[in-house]
């Protein structure tokens, strides 16, 4: 039963994209993922309009003061189990905007992050790789470890602002940030 559950979750990740103050660079690359050259629908990925339908929240950009509240409420609206992927250098750490007067910092200052995909912006392939690696992390290794997928929901229940998820699945994917 757990196997089927995990299989379904891995094969059908519906994503919601939230821009928390990004420069559009990562955002257009996410949209490019949907288009013929990359076509993430192959993997069952669907871009959903409502946070209620989503499994994975893709956050791009450093978190600005004005977006922080909103980002948290969108995260809270998502049903369990849910995952957050920080896309781009800014979402991972604040990037070039770290320390500016209107910037809170990386996404993990506001909500727990499951996977980080650095790059400015990461290539679409890198994003794809990141999401797939995240989902494969759900698949317990051959020995049946039941708690792994069931554990994620616990991780994702922040009452207060946390700096890091309890067990972030950090995937370093081809950092090609430029400067």
């Amino acid at each position: 039963m757990t196997d089927i559950k995990t299989w379904a979750r891995v094969k059908s990740p519906w994503v919601l994209h939230f821009n928390s103050g990004a420069c559009n660079g990562c955002d257009i690359e996410i949209v490019a993922l949907l288009t013929p050259k990359y076509d993430v629908e192959r993997f069952g990925v669907k871009l959903e309009p409502s946070p209620r339908h989503a499994d994975v929240l893709l956050v791009t950009g450093c978190v600005t003061q004005q977006c922080a509240e909103r980002l948290k409420s969108i995260y809270d609206q998502m049903p369990q189990p849910k995952f957050v992927v920080a896309i781009g250098a800014c979402a991972c750490s604040g990037g070039v905007f770290e320390g500016n007067y209107n910037v809170v910092g990386g996404v993990d200052k506001v909500i727990p992050v499951t996977a980080y995909i650095p790059g400015c912006p990461p290539r679409p392939e890198a994003m794809l790789d990141g999401v797939v690696k995240l989902l494969n992390a759900l698949n317990p290794p051959k020995a049946k470890k039941q708690p792994k997928p069931a554990k994620e929901p616990e991780v994702a229940k922040p009452e207060v602002v946390v700096a890091h998820a309890a067990q972030p699945v950090v995937e370093e994917v081809k950092p090609i940030a430029k400067q």
């Binding site: 821009n19 103050g21 977006c67 905007f97 209107n102 910037v103």
Partner: peptide, 11 residues
């Protein structure tokens, strides 16, 4: 507006 205001001019 201002949701994406990152204060670049000051930076």
């Amino acid at each position: 507006i201002g949701y994406v205001h990152r204060g670049i001019e000051k930076a």
